[in-house]
Write a protein that binds this DNA or RNA. Structure first.
Lengths: 334, 334
DNA sequence: CTGTTAGCGCTTTCAT
DNA sequence: ATGAAAGCGCTAACAG
């Protein structure tokens, strides 16, 4: 039924070792022989069996990528960076979606390891002890991308989430705002939730602005929750003159809530966020937002992984990539 | 270095066959023996080698999914449908991104086949003869999802793209519009481009409305191209009173172009599109759009694939799932 | 219920 | 430049 290397060998009148050499581009084959073999391969429609190859060579030339949420544009962008570099170094990548569930993440990590990937890229989610445990049992290198573990025991590539939101809030402060609301993500989420919240507090503190509990609302990263949170702020007696949202979507929700209340952005209330996703330019006014280098995070982490897989030395264990605030139209002077 | 089934066998004082049985949940093992084996596994930190297993059993319990563009929300949704069903039937799925490039699609299909996946799901893109050729050489079943080949030789699950856009345009006509512009995708794209364009023409024809070349602009599915196209319409002497866009993003671009020109949606110009992506509710006015059951397309195609992999008979070769027009606020009576 | 024994399709020494 | 042969780690008859 299936054509094996042995069939090709017979067809070409050579040994299977020679066929293997041809398939693997080993130079020690007479051009004529090579030609014969290629013809036989063509005639028989031979397709190498990567599973057998992986078993024999103990290498699969594939790296596993666990992506926490396939429908999140940011992660998709990271994945693109990973892929481009992987292709460059002749690795296949297999993407496994973990659907934002921790147990699925663990399961997927193990599946990937069982599949004998040559390396593992863990994207996004929170890194718990259970994760660390799973990584420890791995005999192949692991790189965290767009996330990091608390103790930095595992190589990682990420941005400084706290600094990113600090910079966002600082821009508001620099525009004269002192009553600044925050629409946060869940504080249980270390990167997007807690770090951004903490950056917000830090920025206030740096400017000597007292923290006001009423100025913080927790959302779920989505548009609707941005609307809800903003409505709350709007109803406040002493409402904020500027709002910082942890994601673009929530920021857009906030903008619409403001507009629905008959107020204007940024004239009445300024809005800023972190993400700089494509939708940031798809609102009126266009959204000022902190850009994170998602593609680069993917690219750098894949490059790091190739070094690790090659047992090359790496200059660092933890890479922090710079972010950038993209000024558009949603922030104005107080 | 690595722990094998043989090590476990020795540790537990049984044969490797028994260990294999335990690992594979074969009932023919005395509970006591099973326990011994599990303990040995635990002690040694044994992890089954899926590659060796795949070679021996000629099954990998994984299906390959080629996704044309990982940053496209629609496909992400299809993937979710695929995954949920795959999990249900105990298949792992590995996602390979083809980056909207045909040659990469072909390459990825071959890689997946070399990796001995038990089945293949091809999502999205155009199906050319070259694809068909690659599928023919496959010894495992293939299902097309969210696309179909011209001759329906390959099992597929899709919606009726032409009918979807026909229904959208019909809604406009039913609201009294007769001057209807279309912002199309590239006409080279059979599903999203040509089919939607054709549906538009068909709807006009059904209503006895003459086709006007000036009322069709080709965009690239993106927001900016929606703006461009709409600006063109706005400059027309006899401009359309309604616009049908092939994607939500272009529709939103159109809405903003209309608003920037000092006109109102839907009072002055109605807008409708196909996609019903999350951003459809993230504009003012909210966008009326035709919903496609992306999740279901994924789920149904995966289910179909499981049947095919099991050599079960299937009632159909081509499944066409129903779409639904979601009425929001961007369409008004002429 | 358990063990023995062939392979699965390929890579990789080691000879020649 | 080529071939022979020994595995890679596991499953799947087949025996018992």
């Amino acid at each position: 039924m299936t054509v094996t290397i042995y069939d090709v060998a017979r067809e070409a009148g050579v040994s299977m070792a020679t066929v293997s050499r041809v398939v693997n581009n080993n130079p020690n084959v007479k051009p004529q022989t090579r030609k014969k073999v290629f013809e036989a391969i063509e005639r028989l429609g031979y397709r190498p069996n990567a599973v057998a190859r992986g078993l024999a060579s103990k290498k699969t030339t594939t790296v596993g990528v666990v992506i926490p949420d396939i429908s999140n544009m940011n992660f998709a962008e990271v994945a693109r960076g990973i892929e481009d570099i992987a292709t460059m170094y002749h690795y296949n990548i297999i993407l496994c979606n973990a659907d934002k569930k921790k147990d699925k993440e663990i399961r997927v990590i193990n599946t990937l390891l069982e599949k004998q990937v040559d390396g593992l890229l863990f994207m996004g989610g929170t890194v718990t002890d259970e994760h660390i445990q799973a990584f420890r049992t791995s005999s192949v290198p692991v790189v965290l991308c767009a996330t990091a573990d608390g103790n930095n025991t595992i190589p990682s590539v990420d941005i400084d989430h706290e600094k990113a939101s600090l910079d966002a809030v600082k821009l508001l402060i620099d525009h004269g705002h002192r009553k600044i609301g925050m629409i946060s993500g869940t504080l249980q989420d270390p990167a997007l939730g807690y770090a951004r919240y903490h950056g917000y507090k830090q920025a206030l503190e740096n400017a000597g602005i007292p923290f006001n509990e009423n100025y913080v609302r927790v959302g779920n990263y989505r548009y609707e929750s941005g609307i809800e949170a903003m409505k709350f702020f709007l109803d406040l007696e002493d409402r904020p003159t500027a709002v910082f949202a942890a994601t673009d979507e929530m920021a857009i929700g906030a903008i619409h809530a403001i507009q629905d209340a008959g107020l204007k952005v940024p004239e009445d209330i300024s809005v800023i966020s972190v993400d700089n996703s494509r939708i940031a330019s798809m609102v009126r006014p266009q959204l000022t937002s902190v850009a994170q280098p998602m593609y680069d995070i993917g690219a750098v982490s894949m490059r790091l992984l190739t070094k690790l897989m090659n047992k090359e030395s790496t200059d660092q264990n933890k890479y922090v990539l710079p972010h950038d605030v993209i000024k558009r139209q949603s922030v104005a002077q107080k």
